[in-house]
Amino acid sequence: MTIAVCVKHVPDPADPAVLAADLRVDREAAAGMLCSLDEYAVDRAVQLRHPGERVVAVTMGPRGARAAVTRALQMGADEGLVITDPSLAGADAVTTAAVLAAAVRSLGDVDLVLCGMSSTDGSTGTVPPMVADLLGWGCAGHAVAVVREAGHVTIERDDPDARRTLVAPLPAVVSVTDLSGEPSYPSFKAILAAKRRPVREVSLAELPVRTSARGLRTVAATVAPPRAPARIVTDVDGSGAHALVQVLTDRFPMGVS
Protein backbone atom coordinates (compact mmCIF):
# COMPACT_ATOMS: atom_id res chain seq x y z
CA MET A 1 0.00 0.00 0.00
CA THR A 2 0.98 3.61 -0.53
CA ILE A 3 0.31 6.67 1.58
CA ALA A 4 0.39 9.81 -0.54
CA VAL A 5 1.10 13.12 1.15
CA CYS A 6 0.33 16.32 -0.75
CA VAL A 7 2.87 19.05 -0.10
CA LYS A 8 3.36 22.62 -1.28
CA HIS A 9 6.42 24.74 -1.81
CA VAL A 10 5.62 28.18 -0.40
CA PRO A 11 7.44 31.46 0.23
CA ASP A 12 8.72 31.78 3.79
CA PRO A 13 5.79 33.43 5.63
CA ALA A 14 8.30 35.39 7.71
CA ASP A 15 9.46 37.22 4.54
CA PRO A 16 7.34 39.97 3.02
CA ALA A 17 5.23 38.47 0.22
CA VAL A 18 6.32 39.44 -3.31
CA LEU A 19 3.67 39.68 -5.99
CA ALA A 20 4.39 39.47 -9.71
CA ALA A 21 2.86 41.85 -12.29
CA ASP A 22 -0.23 39.62 -12.55
CA LEU A 23 -0.71 39.99 -8.75
CA ARG A 24 0.01 36.33 -8.11
CA VAL A 25 2.75 35.18 -5.75
CA ASP A 26 6.13 35.60 -7.45
CA ARG A 27 7.43 32.10 -6.86
CA GLU A 28 10.76 32.83 -8.52
CA ALA A 29 11.51 35.82 -6.30
CA ALA A 30 10.73 34.13 -3.02
CA ALA A 31 13.04 31.82 -1.13
CA GLY A 32 10.73 28.84 -0.76
CA MET A 33 10.25 26.10 1.78
CA LEU A 34 8.04 23.12 2.48
CA CYS A 35 4.81 24.63 3.81
CA SER A 36 5.07 24.32 7.60
CA LEU A 37 1.50 23.01 7.81
CA ASP A 38 2.42 20.20 5.40
CA GLU A 39 5.25 19.09 7.69
CA TYR A 40 2.59 17.75 10.05
CA ALA A 41 1.08 15.71 7.21
CA VAL A 42 4.47 14.29 6.20
CA ASP A 43 5.30 13.36 9.77
CA ARG A 44 1.88 11.72 10.30
CA ALA A 45 2.28 9.78 7.03
CA VAL A 46 5.66 8.44 8.07
CA GLN A 47 4.27 7.41 11.46
CA LEU A 48 1.25 5.68 9.89
CA ARG A 49 3.39 3.73 7.38
CA HIS A 50 3.40 -0.02 7.99
CA PRO A 51 6.46 -2.16 7.18
CA GLY A 52 6.70 -2.74 3.44
CA GLU A 53 4.59 0.31 2.60
CA ARG A 54 5.77 3.51 0.96
CA VAL A 55 5.06 7.18 1.57
CA VAL A 56 5.09 9.26 -1.61
CA ALA A 57 5.31 13.06 -1.33
CA VAL A 58 3.42 14.68 -4.20
CA THR A 59 3.67 18.31 -5.22
CA MET A 60 2.58 20.54 -8.07
CA GLY A 61 4.59 23.63 -8.84
CA PRO A 62 7.50 25.13 -10.76
CA ARG A 63 10.83 23.24 -10.89
CA GLY A 64 11.89 24.82 -7.60
CA ALA A 65 8.97 23.11 -5.86
CA ARG A 66 11.11 19.98 -5.87
CA ALA A 67 12.73 21.42 -2.72
CA ALA A 68 9.51 20.78 -0.80
CA VAL A 69 9.59 17.11 -1.83
CA THR A 70 13.27 16.89 -0.89
CA ARG A 71 12.41 18.15 2.57
CA ALA A 72 9.60 15.56 2.82
CA LEU A 73 12.13 12.85 1.91
CA GLN A 74 14.44 14.12 4.65
CA MET A 75 11.51 13.82 7.05
CA GLY A 76 11.12 10.17 6.09
CA ALA A 77 9.06 9.95 2.88
CA ASP A 78 10.25 7.19 0.52
CA GLU A 79 9.63 8.73 -2.89
CA GLY A 80 8.73 12.02 -4.49
CA LEU A 81 6.51 13.01 -7.39
CA VAL A 82 6.70 16.52 -8.84
CA ILE A 83 4.12 17.65 -11.39
CA THR A 84 5.56 20.63 -13.16
CA ASP A 85 4.32 22.28 -16.32
CA PRO A 86 4.49 25.88 -17.54
CA SER A 87 0.75 25.82 -18.16
CA LEU A 88 0.16 25.29 -14.44
CA ALA A 89 1.59 28.67 -13.42
CA GLY A 90 -1.03 30.50 -11.38
CA ALA A 91 -3.28 27.42 -11.21
CA ASP A 92 -6.35 27.86 -9.01
CA ALA A 93 -7.49 25.47 -6.27
CA VAL A 94 -9.67 23.42 -8.65
CA THR A 95 -6.82 22.88 -11.11
CA THR A 96 -4.39 22.13 -8.29
CA ALA A 97 -6.79 19.57 -6.82
CA ALA A 98 -7.35 18.00 -10.25
CA VAL A 99 -3.60 17.62 -10.81
CA LEU A 100 -3.00 16.20 -7.31
CA ALA A 101 -5.93 13.77 -7.64
CA ALA A 102 -4.60 12.56 -11.02
CA ALA A 103 -1.13 12.17 -9.51
CA VAL A 104 -2.52 10.12 -6.61
CA ARG A 105 -4.43 7.95 -9.04
CA SER A 106 -1.27 7.38 -11.08
CA LEU A 107 0.42 5.88 -8.01
CA GLY A 108 -2.04 2.99 -8.16
CA ASP A 109 -2.37 1.50 -4.70
CA VAL A 110 -2.99 4.54 -2.50
CA ASP A 111 -5.39 4.00 0.38
CA LEU A 112 -4.69 7.18 2.32
CA VAL A 113 -3.92 10.74 1.23
CA LEU A 114 -2.64 13.11 3.90
CA CYS A 115 -2.65 16.89 3.54
CA GLY A 116 -1.92 19.90 5.71
CA MET A 117 -5.04 21.83 6.74
CA SER A 118 -4.20 24.68 4.35
CA SER A 119 -1.20 26.33 2.77
CA THR A 120 0.48 29.26 4.47
CA ASP A 121 0.46 31.34 1.25
CA GLY A 122 -2.95 30.86 -0.40
CA SER A 123 -4.47 29.78 2.92
CA THR A 124 -7.72 28.64 1.32
CA GLY A 125 -7.95 25.12 2.80
CA THR A 126 -10.07 24.11 -0.19
CA VAL A 127 -7.71 21.63 -1.87
CA PRO A 128 -8.08 18.60 0.49
CA PRO A 129 -11.90 18.29 0.15
CA MET A 130 -11.64 18.90 -3.61
CA VAL A 131 -9.00 16.17 -4.00
CA ALA A 132 -11.26 13.81 -2.04
CA ASP A 133 -14.30 14.54 -4.19
CA LEU A 134 -12.27 14.16 -7.39
CA LEU A 135 -11.03 10.76 -6.21
CA GLY A 136 -14.53 9.82 -5.07
CA TRP A 137 -13.29 9.32 -1.50
CA GLY A 138 -14.38 10.74 1.82
CA CYS A 139 -12.51 13.66 3.40
CA ALA A 140 -11.86 13.76 7.14
CA GLY A 141 -10.62 17.30 7.69
CA HIS A 142 -8.70 19.07 10.45
CA ALA A 143 -7.59 15.98 12.35
CA VAL A 144 -5.63 16.49 15.56
CA ALA A 145 -5.06 12.72 15.80
CA VAL A 146 -5.15 9.97 13.17
CA VAL A 147 -5.34 6.20 13.68
CA ARG A 148 -5.22 3.93 10.64
CA GLU A 149 -6.82 0.51 10.98
CA ALA A 150 -7.83 -2.21 8.55
CA GLY A 151 -10.32 -0.69 6.14
CA HIS A 152 -10.83 2.60 7.92
CA VAL A 153 -9.23 5.61 9.50
CA THR A 154 -10.28 7.18 12.80
CA ILE A 155 -9.60 10.83 13.48
CA GLU A 156 -10.08 13.24 16.37
CA ARG A 157 -11.29 16.72 15.51
CA ASP A 158 -11.60 19.82 17.68
CA ASP A 159 -14.74 21.78 16.85
CA PRO A 160 -15.69 24.98 18.67
CA ASP A 161 -18.43 23.21 20.64
CA ALA A 162 -17.01 19.73 21.09
CA ARG A 163 -14.21 17.32 20.42
CA ARG A 164 -15.40 14.69 17.97
CA THR A 165 -14.22 11.26 16.86
CA LEU A 166 -14.93 10.38 13.22
CA VAL A 167 -14.45 7.21 11.22
CA ALA A 168 -14.00 7.19 7.44
CA PRO A 169 -13.69 4.11 5.24
CA LEU A 170 -10.43 3.75 3.33
CA PRO A 171 -9.39 4.97 0.87
CA ALA A 172 -9.79 8.47 2.25
CA VAL A 173 -8.25 11.93 2.35
CA VAL A 174 -7.27 13.24 5.78
CA SER A 175 -6.08 16.75 6.52
CA VAL A 176 -4.21 17.35 9.77
CA THR A 177 -3.80 20.51 11.84
CA ASP A 178 -0.76 21.99 13.52
CA LEU A 179 -2.07 20.57 16.82
CA SER A 180 -1.60 16.99 15.62
CA GLY A 181 1.90 16.78 17.13
CA GLU A 182 5.16 18.57 16.38
CA PRO A 183 7.08 16.97 13.50
CA SER A 184 10.47 15.57 14.40
CA TYR A 185 13.50 17.38 13.02
CA PRO A 186 15.43 15.27 10.48
CA SER A 187 18.82 13.96 11.58
CA PHE A 188 21.98 14.46 9.51
CA LYS A 189 21.77 10.77 8.62
CA ALA A 190 18.20 11.18 7.39
CA ILE A 191 19.22 14.17 5.28
CA LEU A 192 21.97 12.10 3.62
CA ALA A 193 19.67 9.12 3.13
CA ALA A 194 17.08 11.33 1.40
CA LYS A 195 19.53 12.01 -1.43
CA ARG A 196 19.29 8.41 -2.58
CA ARG A 197 15.48 8.32 -2.71
CA PRO A 198 13.80 8.60 -6.11
CA VAL A 199 12.01 11.75 -7.23
CA ARG A 200 10.06 11.62 -10.47
CA GLU A 201 9.21 14.78 -12.42
CA VAL A 202 6.26 14.60 -14.78
CA SER A 203 4.59 17.11 -17.05
CA LEU A 204 0.94 17.37 -18.00
CA ALA A 205 1.73 15.42 -21.18
CA GLU A 206 2.25 12.36 -18.97
CA LEU A 207 -0.55 13.15 -16.56
CA PRO A 208 -3.50 14.42 -18.55
CA VAL A 209 -5.70 16.74 -16.55
CA ARG A 210 -8.38 18.97 -17.90
CA THR A 211 -7.75 22.45 -16.55
CA SER A 212 -9.99 25.43 -16.89
CA ALA A 213 -9.97 29.01 -15.76
CA ARG A 214 -13.00 29.71 -13.64
CA GLY A 215 -12.90 33.44 -13.72
CA LEU A 216 -11.36 34.64 -10.47
CA ARG A 217 -8.99 37.49 -11.19
CA THR A 218 -7.06 39.54 -8.66
CA VAL A 219 -7.41 43.15 -9.75
CA ALA A 220 -5.72 45.05 -6.93
CA ALA A 221 -3.26 44.32 -4.16
CA THR A 222 -2.11 46.70 -1.47
CA VAL A 223 0.12 46.26 1.52
CA ALA A 224 -1.97 46.53 4.68
CA PRO A 225 -1.04 49.72 6.52
CA PRO A 226 1.22 48.85 9.42
CA ARG A 227 0.24 49.81 12.95
CA ALA A 228 1.77 53.12 14.06
CA PRO A 229 4.91 52.61 16.16
CA ALA A 230 3.99 51.53 19.67
CA ARG A 231 4.50 53.47 22.85
CA ILE A 232 6.99 51.34 24.78
CA VAL A 233 6.97 51.37 28.56
CA THR A 234 9.60 49.50 30.53
CA ASP A 235 7.96 48.22 33.68
CA VAL A 236 9.53 49.86 36.72
CA ASP A 237 7.68 50.12 40.03
CA GLY A 238 4.27 49.51 38.52
CA SER A 239 4.65 51.75 35.47
CA GLY A 240 3.61 48.87 33.18
CA ALA A 241 0.36 48.18 35.01
CA HIS A 242 -0.27 51.91 35.24
CA ALA A 243 -0.01 52.23 31.44
CA LEU A 244 -2.30 49.24 30.91
CA VAL A 245 -4.91 50.56 33.37
CA GLN A 246 -4.73 53.90 31.55
CA VAL A 247 -5.64 52.14 28.29
CA LEU A 248 -8.53 50.39 30.03
CA THR A 249 -9.90 53.60 31.56
CA ASP A 250 -9.45 55.55 28.32
CA ARG A 251 -11.06 52.95 26.10
CA PHE A 252 -13.55 51.26 28.43
CA PRO A 253 -14.57 54.01 30.89
CA MET A 254 -17.86 52.35 31.83
CA GLY A 255 -16.36 49.01 32.69
CA VAL A 256 -13.33 50.04 34.64
CA SER A 257 -13.23 53.50 36.17
Binding site: R231, I232, V233, T234, G240
Partner: peptide, 8 residues
Protein backbone atom coordinates in the same frame (compact mmCIF):
# COMPACT_ATOMS: atom_id res chain seq x y z
CA UNK B 1 2.56 45.15 15.96
CA UNK B 2 1.05 46.77 19.03
CA UNK B 3 -0.05 50.17 20.27
CA UNK B 4 1.31 49.88 23.80
CA UNK B 5 4.30 47.68 24.53
CA UNK B 6 5.19 46.87 28.12
CA UNK B 7 8.66 45.44 28.62
CA UNK B 8 8.47 43.51 31.84
Amino acid sequence: SCDLGIVG
